[in-house]
Amino acid sequence: MSTADAWRVLREATQARVGLGRAGDALPTAEILRLDAAHALARDAVHAPLDVEALVTDLRGATGLDVVRVASEAGDRTEYLQRPDLGRRLADGAELTAGEWDLAVVVADGLSARAVQAHAAGLLAALLARLEGWAVAPPVVATQARVALGDDVGSRLGAALVLVLIGERPGMSAPDSLGAYLTWGPRRGRADAERNCVSNVRPPHGLSYERAADVLAALLTESRRRQLSGVGLKDTGEALPPAD
């Protein structure tokens, strides 16, 4: 097998940048330029705004539920990047009414509006299909939002659990990766260790909607049964499907 063929086999096994070649003890010019271009695109993805109208339409279509819009206390992208505390707090004026909800769902722009735009509706549709009998509150679209904003939203809605679907930090090879964080008993001040996370939802390269929904549905069911989330809720349960 030739050298080129051998590297092709490895490259097909992963998105990681294997076998880039060498210029002495450095990378060749063509690869340096490819890396620069990927960095430039990821930088631009961080600063692109969420198209809220389009997302609301997609979520309505995917779930058949009404959709509520809220914002964090961070006024714009620059403030959002430097003040995570503001991105965790719900701005005044949010129209959220408490109810008897098993689950609240927050769809948040996070650090990649592109991820949310591409994957949130598809994942949510797959998940709701697995949650028969659950009382799910109208999905909430949140802008300039961090994961912990879900605590404010969940507690205002009176929900037992909150699930936050959020755009993850763009990588050079993954500018559109969605993360999902679930928290039992949402209230301001919950620690990261009290949450469970499924990350890299990004078909076709990352997790598929179906696979992510299987894991999330099992985690949500276990969380509700045991009335906890986080480190105490390892995804060990027999209820979980086997890994791919």
Partner: peptide
């Protein structure tokens, strides 16, 4: 990491 691009954690380390 390969090429300095961590495709799981979405950040750049060294190549």
């Amino acid at each position: 990491v390969p090429g300095g691009d961590d495709v799981m954690l979405a950040y750049q380390s060294l190549s």
